[in-house]
Write a protein that binds this DNA or RNA. Sequence first.
DNA 1: ATCCTATATATGATTAATCATATACTAGCA
DNA 2: TGCTAGTATATGATTAATCATATATAGGAT
Lengths: 194, 194
Amino acid sequence: MGRASPPYSFGKPPMSLAHVILGLLQQQERTGYDLKTKCFDDCISHLWQADQAQIYRTLDKLESQGWITCNVEIQHDRPNRKVYRITEAGEAELTHWLQTHHPLPVLREPLLVQLYFAAQLPNEAIVYLLEQELEARQEKLAQCETIEALSLSNPTASREQKLHRLVLDLVKQREQTYLDWLEKAIATIRSQST
Amino acid sequence: MGRASPPYSFGKPPMSLAHVILGLLQQQERTGYDLKTKCFDDCISHLWQADQAQIYRTLDKLESQGWITCNVEIQHDRPNRKVYRITEAGEAELTHWLQTHHPLPVLREPLLVQLYFAAQLPNEAIVYLLEQELEARQEKLAQCETIEALSLSNPTASREQKLHRLVLDLVKQREQTYLDWLEKAIATIRSQST
DNA sequence: ATCCTATATATGATTAATCATATACTAGCA
DNA sequence: TGCTAGTATATGATTAATCATATATAGGAT
């Protein structure tokens, strides 16, 4: 008991986006548009990026799965809103998923491939590549700091906020590790004879 | 000039796996089976993981693109081998790709999502989750060290090897950042009242 | 009068990736 | 005898993700 019986058919093991959405809908009811603009883009872009089309299609699947329900709000000045709410089955599924270990995600970084095969390139070309990456990573760290300022600025440290803080700490440290390594790598390549 | 004219149609911007394969074929000619077993699984698993089926399909695409050619080696005791070699057009494409900045890959980590929404869970459940992640990350770091021992043990420091070392350094540091954070996070949660 | 932005949802097309499975022969082991 | 492992390539099915585009209305700026 606790979970629906076997024939799920909907996306087996990870299905992570579905569960991110369940988590967000457990906080409060929302529309697809709210999820995209207020949640994914403004609050958890450091954590999970999602395409608008995929959000709407996942909402459809979650609804036909019985994990969320939909209530259409008629609006006259604007398009109607489909407000989604998590169901009891959805909460059970979320609670189960939250406690399940998932395999480490596969990382595929073009920059590392480039560096791995860069032996044929002149040093300046390699340094240029690393500098562009450095710039992109600095920008990403800045985005993390924006999110930090927006959502973790007030001193009220609820249990939830402490967890959000932990998550953001990792993401920031990850970027910092990258930045440190890039600076070291640039110095190493520069000091090298071609 | 330098690149084939517009109607590529094959996978636009990233197409990274195709370029990893081009890089490996520039080192020497290989079969799909060699690529899977000797390269992806043994040498660059820390860098890029690839499914056997996708390797074969990408070889087909690269061939029809004119970036590699194929020579069938007839074997009588075993299945025939299709030996692939990079072409001049392929080398030009690789050189171009190696110098192009690519957008940062999107990271989607189930564990971070779980922690973000874990406020409803008891501390022990959160700690258990973090400990499982810690174990998986330790194993991954150990895999990096195996690769290090296998491919970077000899003291000959060619230009190529120095680059491979840089790449491995980042991957190891990334895992270490994770491990440090996980230990800190476990201590933090443990010290917390439920 | 025209254009852009915001609100709101939806579909079609395509790519990248994974999983399962099929085929086929050899060699070694139990 | 049957089983497994290694060598070698290939296809079908499916999922996850991205991009482009379509529709519709209101309100503000140029």
